[in-house]
Write a protein that binds this DNA or RNA. Structure first.
Lengths: 350, 350
DNA sequence: CCAATTTAATGGAACGTTCCATTTTATTCT
DNA sequence: AGAATAAAATGGAACGTTCCATTAAATTGG
């Protein structure tokens, strides 16, 4: 007696060929759209395909091709809306080009990052967009020189790595928002949040310091305070800033989430943000708009950076001879309430 | 004369074998860790691998295996922090199990959703977690009965589809928050946001209506107002609610983002939310905590749902005989300021 | 020390596709 | 109509791996 069939085995190209009374080569032709096949035959094959529920096996195809049509996107912190926006931008461009993104979240873990990138390469990713986890070392991506997988580093640049780069103009943005505070009359300005080892902090701090220098001022070293780049980090950093005998009158924060933590700390001490003290952020995440008072910050267009990153990577994939390039995106000042500009203007008018 | 070599071709298992003076079968053995090979030989092979920069070709391997170790995650709206949290939960569990997630964002487009799921199946995904785009029809995922790719539907259930399901307890959650409002003395309660065709809205509205009925009340049909499930949608829906001759005193919203839009509309009309009118949300996204006044809402633990979804899918992948199951996660009331409970308590005490 | 056993290592045939070199069939030109 | 050409269809050898059936080498037992 015939044994009950356990699992219907995958339907392949030759079964389609049999069903359509044609050779497997012909089926391949209609699949890839490469040769010329009689419309009538094509139709017969198409019908056989959905009748049998055929699904194309890209693994098998890539075995000959090398063209994998997949790219990896490695994010250090998907819970940060900034990176979600970035990812959406990447995805949009990729999907238009018929590529599919292989996305993964490392939660700032370098070992996870390594694992995930290995997996992606093993699956034949033609390129990887990497937003590196903290403490990523050049040797963690030693393969980057190779020709099989193109690498693009985004958001956090990675000194000493041969790869294309897409970042916002951190130093110009920080300089811009600092000048805004200087124009409002602030002199005693603090820089809050982020760890000293982060290149992004270095860049932003540098912009801030340059703007101060341009106005003949300098940042008091005691007002340059590190913290984790989190809400809690901002909260405690602001706490120590306010405990100082000579408080700052304005605070530029590493990013929006630090700024929001700092606002909480100020409020807790009875200060009205925007009146008693100015606080500004960086990134312009959607939270910046909805927090109260609304946060003055630097908009870097996360989605746009993502689109640009994807486009640049695609270019390098399709044309491997092209050199690695660097794109530095705009960083625009968005004035809201937390800097006190509005109240300042009122006072000037009144 | 020899032509300059264009691209170093991929190094394969047999090149490793040659370099290590061994057969390709032996290399395969150490790669898979299946047979027994002398430690000394294993070491020699390992060294050859990193000397030549070998990268495992999973496509080729899967050709024999069928075990792909990849699963797809299809999200309808990555820009919503709720789904980002969900995705992180999924990713965490998947990565522990040695799987890699293939993540894609559809932005509520059914055609994009179809494309992306086809791609994933073509790449050999063993399963797909789908947060369906609006207007997804059962026939859009007709393949779901097949045995090659397991399907799990999350967050928005999809009537008429043979798949496992993971959703929060929408009706219980909505009932709970509605009872809370009833306990605060509200009688004229509106339901705001979401389109009538969405099953999630149907469930939440049902919970709300049941709670009202339990208190001998009913929702005035004129206070059941549809809108897009966005901030703008909430804003305009609230606008029309407030334009009514007989205004609601409390509003339960489809989700947090609608609620935040509604709060803006109320504030614009000079109402103090939490005092002049109660507004509550659903989801407990991180924005709910930071908006002012802080939003009373229903917490559904997006991350936990994600973890559960991944675990359930993995179970079905490794054991295809197991039946499709449904998990309904908890929905807990989080009382903050926007419902006025605090002021209510003060008044009662004073 | 030889047989029996265990441990290591090896060919070679798949797996599902592509693509080159051919062959078959249809179309056009004089 | 017959030759020349163009269009359509086909075998079969890759691609990089796994795994079964073997063989070779090492270990054990009496």
């Amino acid at each position: 007696m015939p044994q009950r069939r356990e699992v219907r085995d995958k339907v392949t190209i030759v079964e389609i060929a049999d069903a359509a009374g044609v050779s497997k080569s012909t089926v391949s032709l209609v699949l890839t759209g490469r040769g010329s096949v009689k419309p009538e035959t094509r139709e017969r094959i198409r019908q056989a395909m959905d009748a049998l529920g055929y699904v194309y096996n890209r693994g098998a195809a890539n075995l000959r091709n090398t063209q994998s049509k997949i790219v990896g996107l490695v994010l250090n912190d998907l819970s940060n809306p900034f990176f979600a926006e970035f990812a959406i931008g990447v995805e949009t461009v990729l999907q238009m080009a018929g590529y599919v993104a292989f996305m993964a979240n490392t939660s700032e873990s370098v070992v996870r990052q390594t694992q995930v990138m290995r997996m992606m390469r093993e699956h034949g990713a033609g390129g990887i967009i990497l937003c590196p986890a903290l403490d990523t070392k050049p040797e963690d991506i030693a393969w980057a020189g190779g020709l099989d997988t193109a690498l693009l580093v985004a958001i956090r640049r990675l000194p000493g790595v041969a790869a294309s780069v897409v970042i916002p103009d951190n130093v110009a943005g920080a300089a811009r928002v600092t000048r805004h505070l200087l124009n409002l009359g602030h002199k005693r300005i603090a820089y809050l949040g982020g760890m000293h080892s982060m290149v992004v902090r270095q860049d932003r701090f540098q912009g801030c310091a340059e703007a101060m220098a341009g106005a003949g001022q300098a940042i008091d070293p005691g007002l340059n305070i590190e913290s984790m780049p989190t809400r809690d980090g901002g909260f405690t950093a602001m706490g120590s800033a306010l405990a100082l005998p000579d408080r700052p009158t304005a605070v530029v924060c590493y990013n929006d989430v630090v700024a929001i933590g700092a606002m909480l700390a100020a409020a807790k001490r009875g200060l009205v943000v925007g009146r008693d003290i100015a606080i500004v952020g960086f990134d312009d995440t959607s939270e910046a708009r909805h927090v109260s008072p609304a946060l003055t910050t630097i908009a870097v267009d996360a989605g746009g950076l993502g689109e640009r990153a994807a486009a640049m990577l695609l270019e390098r994939i399709t044309n491997p001879a092209s050199p690695a390039t660097t794109h530095i995106g705009p960083a625009d000042l968005v004035i809201r309430e937390s800097c006190g500009a509005y109240q300042h203007a009122l006072a000037a008018a009144g």
